[in-house]
Amino acid sequence: MKPNEIFKELKVHFGEEITELVENPSSDTYISVKPEKIDEICRFLRDNDAFKFDFLTLLSGLDLKEKLGIVYHLYSMELKHRLVLKTEVPKDSPNLPSLVRVWRTADWHEREAFDMFGINFQGHHNLIRILCPYDWEGYPLRKDYKEPEEYHGNRVPY
């Protein structure tokens, strides 16, 4: 199924939640959605027989200057098609529903996005840092991140 067909189908079911279909000749096509009901949209995509997106390939966080973005790459084992969903949350309250109950692989991916960008996935059972130490401060992949001078007595800059 092509992304534009999926977009039409999603628009019928979720209406305003689905913002736009972004097509660009030199890059992947993606569907922009609102963050509030992302879990319902994803569950619909997983369970509907026309899509069968049973595989979350990648969940990535983005820093979009004013906002934080979350990108979901989906894949269907059976129908062999891919889909990209993109959503944005404001930087001062980066909250959106967690997808752990839809795909279990979202667990570590969401923890990583939390670790690197400070995105708060509501409903995640164990949202703690994963790559950085548990007592690390700041969100390293944000564009305005400044590396610490010292960590546990070790100088960090070269």
Binding site: N24, S26, S27, D28, Y30, T57, L58, H73, R82, V84
Partner: peptide, 15 residues
């Protein structure tokens, strides 16, 4: 050019 891409390949460990 401005844009984005997801490129993948079958690695020995997976995708």
């Amino acid at each position: 050019p401005k844009g984005e891409i997801y490129c993948k390949a079958e690695n020995p460990k997976g995708e």
